[in-house]
Every structure is written in C-alpha cells, then in structure tokens.
Simulated assay, not measured.
Amino acid sequence: MTTLRRTLVGEVMTTDVEAVGPDASVAQVVAALRRRGVRALPVVDGELLLGVVSEADVLRLAEHDDVEPPVVHRRRRWQHRPEVPPHTRARDLMTTEVVAVDPGTGVAEAARTMAAHRLGWLPVVDEPAADLAERPPRLRGVVGRADLLRVFERPDDDLAREVRDEVLGRILLLDPGQVTVTAAGGVVTLEGRVSTHADAVVAVALTRRLEGVVDVVDHLGHDVDERTVDVKSL
C-alpha cells in the first residue's frame, strides 16, 4: 500500500462563497456576479444547494423577448434592451443539473471533472446528488482552477523528499544511495543506476504523478533490460 501524497478538495476549497437565495431578483443576481467578478453563483436555501445561476442564464432572458434590431441614426447607436419580467427570480433562471464534488475528492479528479465539463469551478457539497430538487445537498464551499493550482506550490525539498522516501524507498525498496534526487521549480531530476529497466520506468512514472511535479528529467541507467513495463497499468 502506497502513501503518496494526495491533496483533497476539502484542503484547498474556498469557503467564503458568494451565493444568492432562490428569491433573489435579476438585479441582485447581476450585482452579485459583478461584485465577485465571477460568471456563475450557487443558489442556496440556507446551506442547501438548489442550483447554479450564471451570466448565460441571465442573458438567455433576451432570447424570449421581441427585440427589434438596433436603430442607427447618424453616428449614434441605440441598443434596445429586453424587458425583464418583474417577477423573475433566481429560481426561475437557475439550472439544477449541477456538477459537484465532495471534500474527499482528490484535486486531480476535480481537475479532470472541470476539464470534461468545461467548467471554471465546482460546488463542493456533502453528498453530490444528480437531482438537486429531489435531495439538495449542503454546500460546503467551491473549488476553482486557482485553488487546484496550489498543489504546484509545494517546496522543491518536499518533492525531493517524497520521491526519495516514498517512491524509491517505500515502493521500489531501492538503496537510497542508488539514485540522486533533485528538484528545482517542480522539475525533478533522477540520476543513478537501478537494477532493472522496470525499476527505472516505474520510478519515473510514479514521480511524474506526484502532486506538484511539473516534469521529470530521467538520467537513470539500469543493469537488466527486461521487457518494457506498460506504464498505463501502474
């Protein structure tokens, strides 16, 4: 069993969350979006996540209005602004098909989820639910790209130590004197000689997967050149 470092969403998420209630007016939603400089906000009832309302949801109001083309007169242009129904609220605009994660999700998985759904942030909830209307989870915070990038702020000495102690020592059971490990700016260099080609492949593959590692420079030699290891199966 490995003990490689795995940062969780709960360690990096933002708990100071700007949110709106379901009865917030369109003006209040827009003001909150501008205040935080974000493109979407959670809609909550107390601590329960009901949905998410975004700039696109607000702008979509214009699609349902009979808007005439802009009037051009000399050098001025007047844009006709759509009339927003006076009783429109956040609950009318929000989407309940929300992609969320829980605090125990790893940051790597959260990053993959964001990329897969082309999102800039994710709500962090106690228990992700596909249908928020049926069982709203409690909002714990939000996690964005900037939060996930914190794993790359690890000190180089910390990275080098984890490679030596965990990857080389605990997992591969190598003599510490066999490989010299250095790290600079998140780039880890492995220099030395190991017993087999498999040891070299595994050492580089596992080092590359450590949180905070930007790249690995492989200067490892080996004594036995057995069959190539399938890195994807590690």
Rank of each mutant, 00 (worst) to 15 (best):
M1R: 14
T3G: 15
R5P: 02
R5N: 11
R6E: 13
T7W: 00
L8W: 06
D16G: 11
V17D: 03
V20R: 01
G21Y: 00
S25Y: 10
A27E: 14
A31G: 12
A32V: 06
R34G: 03
V44M: 08
E47S: 02
L50I: 01
G51S: 12
S54Y: 00
S54C: 00
S54N: 05
L59E: 05
H64A: 14
D65F: 10
P70V: 03
V72L: 13
R74A: 13
R75F: 05
V84W: 00
T88V: 05
A90D: 04
A90S: 03
R91W: 01
D92Q: 05
T95Y: 10
P103S: 12
G104V: 02
V107K: 01
A116E: 15
A116Y: 10
A116P: 07
A130W: 11
A130R: 15
L132E: 09
E134T: 15
P136H: 10
P136L: 04
R140F: 07
V142N: 02
G144N: 06
L149F: 11
R150E: 09
E153N: 09
R154S: 07
V163Q: 05
L168Y: 06
L168P: 06
G169D: 12
I171G: 00
I171N: 03
P176H: 02
V181Y: 01
V187K: 06
V187C: 10
G192F: 00
R193W: 01
T196E: 08
A198C: 14
A203K: 00
A203C: 07
V204R: 10
R208F: 05
E211Y: 09
V214D: 14
V216C: 12
H222V: 03
V224T: 14
V224D: 14
E226F: 11
T228Y: 13
D230S: 11
K232L: 13
S233L: 13
